[in-house]
Simulated scan of single mutants.
Amino acid sequence: MINEAPGLSAPIAGKKIFFVRHGKTEWNNLFRYQGVTDIPLCEEGREQARKTGLRFAGAEIDAVISSPLSRAYETAENIAAHHVGIKVERLNLLEEVNFGEWEGLTVKEIKERFGEELFYKWRSNQLHVDAPGGESMEKLYERSAQVAKILLERPEDNIVVVGHGAMLRGLFLPMLGLPRSNIFWKTRIDNCSISAFSVEAGNRFVLAYLNDTLHLKMSEAVVTSMPIL
């Protein structure tokens, strides 16, 4: 039965979608903008991905969908490995935001090469200021809306989506029917965190929780018994 009053804390039933950010890379550790540059997981990231897979091991999962970039795809494979018959599906629309000429650079390097004024204008107002040569926020919101529609129309009841920090922050806005805003630095989505949405009455997405990383802090024995929702 679909919950028509989520504010009353009724049990969550029906369709659920879990979003996972990929595990860490060396560029994450160095605070370099990655974007569409295909940087693989580092050792810490692989351990994070393994524990995330264990977190989902006891859950009912019908589909695992991933960005095509290797750091996300490898994370997704760790989740799918615990579910017989589930193969990771690549969805290009889930690719990270393209940061153009800023990819591979740290904030310090961006300021030195492009000026502090441009960086802080972008940081405070991504709606109207883009990274040089990068993806516009208009394009990000357009593809985010496409992803939200695709996920809503999927027939499966339990879906895991593995993607990237900036793209997921943009995606959650159309899913919740929120207006476009400067969300990049107002929402924390850590590496291998889990965020969950349910689909309620009227095909409406409802945020169940955001940025759960408890499994990364626990022993393997504890992780396998932790609930997902």
Rank of each mutant, 00 (worst) to 15 (best):
T213V: 15
L216Y: 04
T187S: 10
R71V: 11
G23L: 03
P174S: 04
I194M: 14
H83I: 10
E43W: 00
A81N: 04
V206Q: 13
L69Y: 09
T75G: 11
F205G: 06
L173K: 06
R46A: 14
P40S: 04
E26I: 00
L151K: 01
A221E: 15
V36D: 10
L171E: 04
K186P: 01
N191W: 05
H164P: 12
N28M: 10
E74S: 11
M1G: 12
E89T: 14
V147K: 07
L140A: 13
R21E: 05
R113S: 14
L178Y: 09
S195G: 04
E156P: 05
G23F: 05
L168F: 11
P68A: 03
G202L: 08
D190M: 02
G58H: 03
N158D: 03
L94A: 12
M218Q: 12
G202N: 06
T75M: 12
G134V: 04
G170S: 08
G134D: 02
R46N: 09
A49L: 07
V20H: 08
S195H: 08
I110M: 09
R55W: 12
I61R: 06
E109W: 15
Q146S: 12
A57I: 01
A131V: 11
G134K: 08
V222M: 05
I189V: 15
P174N: 03
P40N: 06
R169W: 03
K186G: 15
V199F: 01
E220D: 14
G165D: 12
I150M: 09
S124K: 13
I79S: 10
R169M: 05
F31A: 12
A166M: 03
H82D: 02
R71K: 07
L105I: 08
L229N: 13
N211W: 09
F18W: 14
I150N: 03
R154E: 02
F99R: 02
V199L: 10
S195A: 07
E138Q: 11
D190A: 09
K121S: 12
V107G: 00
S124C: 09
M226G: 00
G165V: 06
Q34V: 13
F114G: 07
W185C: 02
A13Q: 15
F172W: 11
V129F: 03
N191T: 10
I110W: 13
P11G: 11
L216F: 07
R46G: 12
R123H: 13
L173Y: 00
A81G: 04
P68Q: 01
T106W: 13
E112W: 09
V206D: 03
G23E: 10
V64D: 12
A145K: 10
Y73W: 14
N29T: 06
I39G: 07
T187P: 00
T52G: 12
E96T: 08
S70G: 06
G14I: 04
R188S: 15
S67C: 06
E77T: 07
R143Q: 10
G115Q: 04
E116V: 07
E101Y: 08
T25V: 10
D157Q: 15
R123Y: 14
N203K: 14
P40R: 06
S219A: 13
L171Y: 10
G45H: 08
I2L: 15
R169Q: 09
N203I: 00
K87P: 00
M167I: 00
E4M: 03
F205I: 06
I17F: 02
L30C: 07
P11L: 07
I150A: 01
L30E: 15
